[in-house]
Amino acid sequence: MNDALVLDKLLDGYDNLKLPGNGQVKVDVEIWVQEVSKIIEITSEFELDIYVTEWWVDPSLAFEHLNPCKKIISTDGAKVLHQIWSPHACFVNSKQASIHRSPISNIFLQLYSNGSVWHNYSTFPIDQQKCMLFYESFHHNFQEVRMEWTQSPILLLKENITLPDYVLIGYKAESVKRLYPPGVWNELVATFTFRRLYGFYILQVYLPAYISTFISWISFYLGPTNITSRTTVGVNALLALTYQFGSVVNNLPKTSDVKAIDVWILISMGFIFISLIELALVGYLVRNDHQSTISCHCSWLCFQCTEWTAAKLDKASMILFPAAFLCFNIWYWGFFLG
């Protein structure tokens, strides 16, 4: 018998609501990753193009006894899939999922003479939170349909998957049991790990923050009497960094946890603010064109110098500020990159 006659014979009187076999079906699942399109940090989403493959055995679709011309029949998946039983699996945490059409629905369906069914389709799910996909049967719980990964559950169709801001560095597949009010569902979890490419942030955030901090130190070299010029330099550096911090925050997710970039900008702003405090002390010492001094009796804290003038304060700041900023950089990059 040819393929059309075999298919007509199989679907004649077929009940697509009846569970195949003895009432419990094992469904093997694979995911083929073709492309990761984008990652949206603000809404905690990522978008990818994948092929989902399902494999199960339905004795009602066995056709070896019909003396077929071929042992494997390829069918019009978009049409035939609705006429046979399927696990009706879905990505439960997706915001949107669609079957790829170019120009027709890309649904592949093969029937084997022993009743095995191979189902494959292309989809674009947009996931939220931690770049994880949760795949499970929507209609059938664990007692009826057991979802399992194949030996090679996730296959990358491209050697390297790289986005403008991220690169895929790892992925894993696991199976968990999820408790719902109607019962226990078998859930397949695919986790994709991306590493950020931070070259953009080096140029757009860190480098300008370095420049703003260095500019604030110029006031130490302008002399104690140029209070107006020194104030302009310090305030402008602080305003520039504050404006840049606002621009960065607008492009980041609204979370309560402290991010590495928050630590960097806030500490940089702290250095600029302390330089303005130092300027206030210098202005106090040279007020009314009189050179005043500050007496300190804690010799161990004041470097054996009990009399502080405006000039001595500037010279100490020339050394202390860069040294403290260097120590902060060593700690920061060692901690967050290490």
Rank of each mutant, 00 (worst) to 15 (best):
A4T: 13
V6F: 04
D8N: 15
L10M: 09
G13A: 10
Y14P: 09
N16G: 00
N16Y: 05
P20Q: 12
N22I: 03
N22D: 14
N22T: 13
G23M: 10
V27R: 05
D28T: 11
W32P: 02
W32L: 14
W32C: 08
F46V: 00
L48Y: 02
Y51P: 03
Y51W: 15
W55P: 08
W56H: 06
D58L: 01
P59T: 02
A62D: 06
L66H: 07
L66F: 08
D76T: 10
S86K: 12
F91E: 05
V92F: 05
V92K: 05
S94W: 00
K95E: 12
Q96D: 09
I99R: 00
R101H: 12
S102P: 07
I104T: 14
Q110D: 09
L111N: 04
L111Q: 04
Y112F: 15
P125W: 00
I126T: 12
Q129K: 09
K130S: 11
M132C: 13
M132T: 14
L133S: 08
F134K: 05
Y135K: 00
S137E: 03
F138H: 14
N141L: 12
S152T: 15
I154G: 03
L156G: 09
E159N: 04
T162S: 14
L163G: 00
S175E: 02
V176Q: 00
V184G: 01
A190G: 07
T193A: 07
G199N: 07
F200M: 11
L207R: 04
S212F: 05
T213N: 08
I215D: 01
I218V: 03
I218F: 00
Y221A: 13
Y221N: 04
P224K: 08
T225W: 12
T228G: 06
S229L: 08
R230A: 02
R230I: 06
V235L: 15
V235H: 14
N236H: 11
L239H: 08
L239T: 08
N251W: 09
L252A: 04
P253T: 00
P253G: 04
S256D: 12
K259L: 11
D262G: 10
V263M: 10
I265E: 00
L266I: 14
I267S: 13
S268N: 06
S268E: 00
M269S: 09
F271P: 00
I274S: 10
L276N: 11
I277M: 04
A280V: 14
Y284Q: 11
L285W: 10
R287A: 10
N288M: 04
D289V: 09
S295R: 01
S295Y: 07
H297P: 02
A310T: 09
A310F: 07
L313I: 14
M318Q: 15
I319F: 01
P322C: 02
A323I: 05
A324S: 14
C327N: 10
F328Q: 08
G334W: 15
G334H: 11
F335A: 07
L337D: 15
G338M: 13
